[in-house]
Structures are given as C-alpha cells and as structure tokens.
Design a binder for these strands. Structure first.
Lengths: 144, 144
DNA sequence: TTGCGTGCAAAGGTTTTGCATGGCA
DNA sequence: TGCCATGCAAAACCTTTGCACGCAA
C-alpha cells in the first residue's frame, strides 16, 4: 500500500465528503453516487484506491456489515482518539446499524486482553443480533 | 427461503460432511473440494442452496471472517443448546480464528440486553483484533 | 522531467439465478 | 404424476488490476 505523495483534486473532493460524513458510514458506491449527483466524475477505482490508503493510514475504518454486500467505511474524525471509539451493533432483522458508546463494553476489551491475551479492535468488530424495536415486534407477533 | 421438502442424496452427503466438520469452519468451496476428492460431484449451486437452507433452519451458522473472501460456515452440532455457544476471535494479523468459550463473555450478552435492549447473536458475531502470538511478535520487533 | 494518481476496461473471486433435467413422494 | 432439487452456465456483484495518459512537484 503506497503512501500518498501527491495531492490531487480527487483526494480533496474525497476529504470534503469524509468531513460531511463524519459519524456516518458509507460504501464506495455511496461515494461515487454522491459525486455523480454533483456532476463530478471520479472513477470507482480511484475511490477504492483512496479509501484503501485512508484505511492503511487509520484515517477511516472499514467494516463488513452485511453478508456479501459492499464494504462500509467510516471516517473517525479529525482528532481520532481512543475515547471516541465505539462498537457497532447490527440488527439482523431490520438491518439497522447502531453506534454504541458504552464504558462497560470497554471492560470487555480489558477482559479479553487480561484473560485471553487478545487485543480487540472495536473499530472493526460488529455485534450481530436483534435490536429493541425488532424484539418488540417479535413479542407482539407471539401474542397474536 | 423454501423449506426442505424432499430428501436427496446430495443432502445426505452434505449432512455426513457436516458431522465430520463439527466445531470446525468451512467454506462452500471446501465442501466442493471435499467431494471432488472423493470423486463425488455436487454442483456448487446446490451446495450454496443447501447451506442457505441450513442457515435459515439454524442448523449451521454463517460468518464473514475475512474482508471479501468466501463466507465461512460452521455446524453447531446435533443438540445445539445455548451453553455450547461460543464467540469467535479473529486475528487481523495472522488470520487465526479462535473459538472462545467464556462465561464472562456471556455477561456481555446480559449487559447488552438489559442496558441496550439488544440481543446479541454470538454465533454470528466475530471479534477482530490481535492474538497473543502476534502481540508477542510486535513487542519483540519494538525491542529491536 | 519524473513518476504518482487517475480512468477505463477487463479480470478476479464469490454468490445468485434461469432454465431444463432428474428424482423424490 | 406433480413438483422440488439439481446441475450447468450465465449473470450479478463487489473489488482489484493492467495500462496508457494526465498532472503534481
């Protein structure tokens, strides 16, 4: 993964998009569509290559949320520090992606480290399960 | 996802394979190769369709371990009960997949349920991070 | 001028799908 | 016999790669 050496117009456009998308997640296709709507043409290969570099630099995170659909990316923000890290919860029923900041969950990291010698990467880990809303719906259906 | 109605030879062959692979994970390609070695031909489409049904029935679990490589499947066993559930740890450096059974981690599920109304599916959730061995290697490199 | 970044198109790998055939009940 | 399951090939999908060109430094 080669380092960024030259500054290009495409890079700058992408950075602008990233700042807009802070805290949100997006796919390579989302990026392409965003610029297509603005009548700006950026090749999908360029988008992938730029995103790859940003991932390598730790500027953005790459997730695999859904089974075999596109990868999701997320911009961590200008000053990405450990305190801002969060976990992702993905509802298997409605597909909703929930950002979860919880100190108790950070103890999970400590436990895994201490007891299992494993340092978890919360920025890549996604918890799958069923969200509150879908649980309610399930219970209602059982009542029928 | 249609239910299984007829019993076929291919189904039975697949079940036999699953029993052999209990506790191990495998891809659709692994299944195909296994039968190819035995001079048994099962179409890859059939394998995918059967695995899909088994996932829908909850007989096997489907994981996405690596970025954009093949999906991994795992047979939970004949009498799959909650106590046998385990989490997966995936080392982002060496690629090792670790099966982790840990009661403390089960408290994680309780916490997510109680505090966040989210019921985690441990059979699908994969924790990404760095394993003990790779951590040691990293530390050794820092000493140089 | 040097060589990195870009864009296009093609290739790559995994999974899904259409359709005719085969086989279970 | 009716209809599901299979197999093959083609398509779909996301992503990567090869190559020629453009552009930053």
């Amino acid at each position: 993964m080669p380092k960024t050496v030259y500054k290009t117009k495409q890079q700058e456009l992408l950075f602008t998009y990233l700042r807009q998308m802070q805290g949100k997640h997006f796919t390579a296709e989302d990026v392409r569509l965003h610029f297509e709507e603005k009548k700006i043409s950026i090749g999908i290969a360029t988008i992938y290559r730029q995103l790859e570099k940003l991932v390598a630099d730790g500027k953005i995170q790459k997730y695999f949320i859904d089974d075999h659909s596109a990868a999701c990316f997320e911009y961590a923000g200008e000053d990405c520090t450990e305190k801002e890290q969060h976990f992702h919860l993905k509802c298997e029923l409605c597909g909703r992606l929930i950002h979860l900041e919880c100190n108790e969950l950070k103890e999970l990291g400590g436990h895994l480290k201490t007891e299992h010698g494993f340092v978890i990467n919360p920025l890549r880990t996604v918890f799958y399960g069923v969200c509150t809303d879908c649980l309610k719906k399930q219970e209602e259906e059982e009542d029928d």
